[in-house]
Design a protein around this nucleic acid. Structure first.
Length: 419
RNA sequence: GGAGAGGUGCCGGAGCGGUUGAACGGGCCGGUUUCGAAAACCGGUGUGGCCGCAAGGUCACCCAGGGUUCGAAUCCCUGCCUCUCCGCCA
C-alpha cells in the first residue's frame, strides 16, 4: 500500500511513476474520496466533541434542565450517526482503492513491456548443451524417477510424483539450502501454509491476484504461494525494536499456485506445477533505503552462493517494468541454465518492497522514544523444488543415461549416482 | 463436536455505566543523593486520524465488529484467540 500522504502531496509524480507499469492510474478519484472522508471526519469529530461536553453535564442537572441537556446531546448523537453512515462506505471504498494500487517501481527498474526487456546483469558458469542430452522428464522417466501420468489421473494437471533416488535428491538439496541459509544467520521457520485473508492481503497477494491462489471456501483460509506470506506476517501489527532489525528469517514450506492463465505454457515435466517446496529468505529491516539496497544484494548473493556450490550455470537479470510484479519496487531474477529447454529458466526471484507490505501489515519499529516507522521487507528464494531438480537432472546427466549427484549433496543423498 | 472460564497499557494486575487514557505494583527513561554503585526519593513513560507553521486543539483506541444508552473498558450480540473438562481422531 502506498502512503496516502505522498499521493496527496505529489499526485503527478506518483501517477507518472506508477504509469511506467503500463496501466493508466486514476489518482484523482482517490484524492476526491480522501477529501470527502476527511471532511466528514472533521464534522463527525466536532459533533461528538459537543455531545461529550453536554453529556458530562447531565449528572449535575435535574428536572427540565436535565431533560433539555439530554435532548441536545441526543441531537448531537444523531449528527454523529449521520456522518458515520456516510463515512463508512466511503472509507471502505478508499481502503479498497488503495489496496488495489501496485507499488511504485524504483527509478532503476528498466523500462519495458515484458520479460523481453529484462536486463542481464551477470552470468556465472559455462552452459552446456550436447546433442545426446535429454530433457528432465525424458531423463527422469527413463530412470523411473518421475511419474506424471499417474498423478494426472488422480490429482489433475501440473501435478507429479517424485520417486526413488529423486526423493532423496530433493530432500538433500532442500536440506543443503536450509543449512546454508541458517549458517548465514537466517533463522529457519516451518510455518503454516494455510493462512487468513489478512496475511494474504498484508503481503499484497490480495485483493488483486486472488485468482492465483487457492481459497478454502468452507473456512476462512488461503493456501500460500510462498512462505514469504506467513514469515512476513509473523509480526503484523507489532512495533519492533530498532536494535533487533534487520530480522533475517528462512522458511521451508509447501507452496501452492493455481497458475491461472498459464494453460498451455510450460506444460512439459515439472517446471511449472501447482504444488512445490521452497526454502525462502525473508528480511524485515529498517526504513533506510541504503541499508535495504545492501540487504537486497545480500539475499541475491546468498542464492548465487548455493547455485555456485551446486555448480549450476546461471545468470542474474533485472526485471523490466513490464515483468515486475505488483508488490515489489525492484526484482532480480536468477535464471538457471536448463539444457533440456536450451535456455536459462527462472529459479529465483529476489525483491525489495520498501514499506509497501508493512503499511498493509501495520508492521513498524521504533528506537527509544522516536516515532514508529514502517519496516522495509525483502525476500528471495534459496531453493525451490522441483524446479531446481529440472536444472540438476539436466545439467548432471551423463552420456550413459545416468545422473551424477553434485559433490556437495553426496553426503546428504548417500550416493554419487542416481538410477 | 459438547460444557465452562477468560482476553485491560512494556509486564503483572484493579476497575464492572458518568469527572478513567485508565488505580496499584514492577520495568524503562530523566533527576536528587553518592567517590562510584545499590537503596531511597522526585518527575516522566502509548498509538493513530483530523485541524494547525507551531504551541496546541479535537476525535478514536481497554481482542475485533455490531448493538443498548444522553453517556460504555464497564451492559447485550457475533466473531477470533487462550485456558480447563468431556467426546472424537491423527
Amino acid at each position: 500500500m502506498l502512503d496516502l500522504r505522498l499521493l496527496r502531496e505529489q499526485p503527478d509524480a506518483m501517477r507518472a511513476a506508477l504509469e511506467r507499469r503500463g496501466e493508466p492510474v486514476d489518482i484523482e478519484s482517490i484524492l476526491k474520496l480522501d477529501a470527502e472522508v476527511r471532511d466528514l471526519m472533521t464534522r463527525r469529530d466536532e459533533s461528538r466533541a459537543e455531545q461529550k461536553r453536554i453529556s458530562k453535564e447531565v449528572p449535575r442537572l435535574e428536572g427540565p434542565q436535565r431533560e433539555e441537556a439530554v435532548a441536545r446531546s441526543k441531537q448531537k448523537g444523531a449528527e454523529v450517526t449521520e456522518c458515520e453512515g456516510k463515512l463508512k462506505p466511503l472509507q471502505a471504498e478508499l481502503q479498497e482503492r488503495l489496496l488495489e494500487l501496485p507499488n511504485v517501481p524504483d527509478p532503476e527498474v528498466p523500462d519495458g513491456e515484458s520479460a523481453e526487456q529484462n536486463v542481464e546483469l551477470r552470468r556465472w558458469g559455462e552452459p552446456r548443451k550436447e546433442s545426446w542430452m535429454k530433457d528432465h522428464l525424458a531423463l527422469a522417466e527413463s530412470l523411473d524417477l518421475i511419474d506424471v501420468k499417474h498423478s494426472a489421473r488422480f490429482a489433475g494437471s501440473r501435478t507429479y510424483i517424485l520417486k526413488g533416488d529423486l526423493v532423496l535428491l530433493e530432500l538433500a538439496v532442500l536440506r543443503y539450502a536450509l543449512d546454508f541459509i541458517a549458517s548465514r544467520g537466517y533463522v529457519p521457520h516451518s510455518p503454516p501454509v494455510m493462512v487468513r485473508r489478512e496475511a494474504m492481503e498484508g503481503t499484497g497477494y490480495l485483493p488483486v491476484g486472488a485468482d492465483q491462489s487457492y481459497e478454502l471456501t468452507r473456512d476462512d483460509g488461503w493456501l500460500v504461494g510462498t512462505s514469504e506470506v506467513p514469515l512476513t506476517a509473523i509480526h503484523a501489527g507489532e512495533t519492533l525494536k530498532e536494535e533487533d532489525l534487520p530480522l533475517r528469517y528462512a522458511g521451508i514450506s509447501a507452496c501452492w499456485r493455481r497458475e491461472a492463465g498459464t494453460h498451455g505454457k510450460d506444460t512439459h515435466g515439472v517446471y511449472r506445477v501447482h504444488q512445490f517446496t521452497k526454502v525462502e529468505q525473508v528480511v524485515i529491516g529498517r526504513n533506510d533505503r541504503d541499508e535495504t539496497l545492501k540487504l537486497h544484494e545480500e539475499i541475491v548473493r546468498n542464492a548465487e552462493h548455493v547455485l555456485q556450490a551446486l555448480k549450476l550455470p546461471y545468470r542474474v537479470v533485472s526485471l523490466s517494468t513490464g515483468d515486475l510484479g505488483r508488490q515489489p519496487a525492484y526484482t532480480y531474477d536468477i535464471e538457471t541454465w536448463m539444457p533440456g529447454r536450451g535456455v536459462y529458466g527462472e529459479t529465483h526471484s529476489a525483491s525489495r518492497y520498501y514499506d509497501f507490505q508493512t503499511r498493509r501489515l501495520n508492521l513498524r519499529y521504533k528506537q527509544g522514544s522516536q516515532k514508529p516507522q514502517f519496516c522495509h521487507t525483502l525476500n528471495n528464494t534459496v531453493i525451490a523444488s522441483p524446479r531446481i531438480l529440472v536444472a540438476l537432472l539436466e545439467n548432471y546427466q551423463r552420456e550413459d543415461g545416468t545422473v551424477a549427484v553434485p559433490d556437495v549433496l553426496v553426503p546428504l543423498v548417500g550416493k554419487e549416482v542416481l538410477g
